[in-house]
Amino acid sequence: MATMTLIQAITDALASEMRLNDDIVVLGEDVGRNGGVFRATDGLQTEFGEDRVMDTPLCESGIIGAAVGMALYGLRPVPEIQFLDFIYPAFDQIVSEVAKMRYRSGGQYTTPMVIRTPYGGGIKGGHYHSQSTEVYFTHTAGLKVVIPSTPYDAKGLLLSCLRQDDPVLFLEPKAIYRKAKGEVPEEDYTVPLGEAAVRREGSDITLVCWGAMLPVCMEAAKRADDDGISCEVIDLRTLVPLDETTLLESVKKTGRMIVVHEAQRTSGFGGELIAIVAEKALEYLEAPVKRVTGFDTPFPYTLEDVYMPDPDRVLRAILETSRYVS
């Protein structure tokens, strides 16, 4: 086993699967000669050539649209969009073509592809290099939305995505691209889609998170221990398909729930999770659910640290939730 960063694990997954499957073609802006804006595709063009690691012009709609045609006719495209914030010119392709091809063709055509894109704040990227707009895509039936938070999962989830037949939006938390380090097997393995990870067991409060919010929640949970509050931390790993079972079992056990996400609060995925708990486990709740989220503003530049949930804010929510008595 090698110790890798999250981004190294992604590169490793791409390279190892490209060696096994000739149909995989990586394409995007600067993915080839330059190895990607964050260097996720570093070395791939040297190993696999320009026909399998294709540099494209700056045309997100053309990139994703071309990937649709490629996927329709025998290839497994892995388009990279440099930042999730840049994906909107391709929004129509993703929600109208990629997501609906199977459905509207009555199952005749499929568009298996993995759209990789870095997302989220934490690098002082300002308005258009920082956002977490995963819900635009979780709101679109036909897409899967996968978000790794550890190097082990990054490789295992990406390999799973490359070996199944539905289109996936693979969101990479760029804030922890290099901060997240861990053991990654060199041999083949997969992490199944639709299974959340219980990162820390606890009995008093359930913290639900994904992506770069995992280390934030882990730190807050550690500090809560000092106050005698035992937090369970659930890393969803895939928002679609969602592992409702793990979520509900945890909430039924703890009776208290806090969702932590970077995205702005209104219509964030936290609202969906809370609705599921309200539908299926309301009678188990011992306190109102809480959300620790970004604010309902565009993503700020100077005040980024205020906008992003941090361990202090999560800890405050933990204390308030734990003290609640009905």
């Binding site: 073609v25 026909d51 709609s61 053309g62 994703i64 649209g65 071309a66 990937a67 649709v68 045609g69 490629m70 996927a71 329709l72 006719y73 025998g74 290839l75 495209p77 129509d92 392709q93 109208s96 073509e97």
Partner: peptide, 17 residues
């Protein structure tokens, strides 16, 4: 216009394969 890039991808798949 949404299907024009799709045609490009089909053509690319033909060329690459």
């Amino acid at each position: 216009g949404g299907h024009l890039p799709l045609a490009v991808g089909l053509g690319l798949a033909d060329r690459l394969q």
